[in-house]
Amino acid sequence: MVDHIQYFSLNIILTHGQESPHEHQQSLLLSRVITNVEKLNEAVLALNKSLQEINLQNMNVELVAQMFKNYQSNVLFHLEATQDLQDPA
């Protein structure tokens, strides 16, 4: 019985003491994952930056559109106030 116990203990020590091939593979895989995540993060950052710039530009365009809209309403108001509004040809 004592021999069995010693064998079992030795077995456990050997199993956990040496580096298993799985652990090595998993560490490699983890490093790959980390690398991929970093790449993906950079890509998403670039994407966000592009979208931010686009939003900025489009915001200015939206400003212009709203200004035009307001200008049109002002013109309409003025023409109606001065009774110069004519029907479209």
Partner: peptide
């Protein structure tokens, strides 16, 4: 972005 740039240039 390129097209938006063109739109912004126009406006």
């Amino acid at each position: 972005a390129k097209h938006s740039e063109a739109v912004w240039e126009g406006s």
